[in-house]
Design a protein around this nucleic acid. Structure first.
Lengths: 111, 111
DNA sequence: CTAGGTACCTCGTATTGTATAGTACCCTAC
DNA sequence: GTAGGGTACTATACAATACGAGGTACCTAG
């Protein structure tokens, strides 16, 4: 490592991407490509396709998301994802855990 | 996974432990065992010896910490760790990154 | 017909958290 | 004097994830 902050930043994001994807989808169902674009707009928080698509698959396998193919009049077929009841519960627990960790981090600041 | 929140929680902590260790040490030099105890008191944020010692080693290899053996009058030898200049800079960048991610997480909440 | 945007998927690699087990020292109590 | 518990560090093996890079296919604009 040394000056390579990028690889550390990746570690800091572990698990967060899943939470963000669930959060984005809890507002409205979206398809993978749109989620990637959405996350890109979300501050400097970037998560490419190579990150998002595997996450979507895992979340679906775990029963936290369900997917549905839709064919628009023109353009490529889109796979829309929606949050399940289990997914919503999981998101709530994740946010609690996140805040707990955050309070631990901030409690040490400027000590 | 499924109901196994523990393994997810572990992912959410990736990278955070390093940041917390650096934060704790930026106040005063401490030895490994004391750091473990300190983190245990820090809310419900638990990181056992099996987690902390490898982290200390990695941080030292990366030049973010330096260690020094000290032999107390009674008891076991203790390895004290201090934050280097590079470590302090690294900690600062980590905190920035942490806050950036946190703002992304919170900005989506209750949308 | 070529370029570029849309939309999806997969593979390989590197990094890290954690349990488990092992070593060794000291002190107290019985 | 010895059994137990607390202190203190180390090594090994495993599972999970982020990300880049590469691949397929469709549509529109010039």
């Amino acid at each position: 490592m040394g000056g390579d902050f990028g690889s550390y930043s990746a570690q800091l994001r572990k698990g967060v991407i899943q939470m963000l994807v669930l959060q984005v989808l809890s507002t409205e169902p979206l398809y993978g490509y749109a989620i990637v674009k959405r996350l890109e707009e979300l501050g400097e928080f970037v998560a490419g396709e190579g990150t998002v698509y595997p996450v979507l698959r895992r979340l679906e396998v775990d029963g936290l998301l369900v997917s549905e193919w839709q064919q628009p009049a023109d353009g490529n077929a889109r796979k829309y994802y929606s949050v399940t009841v289990a997914g919503a519960a999981f998101l709530a627990r994740s946010l609690e855990e996140w805040k707990r960790i955050d309070s631990a981090v901030r409690s040490l600041e400027g000590e």
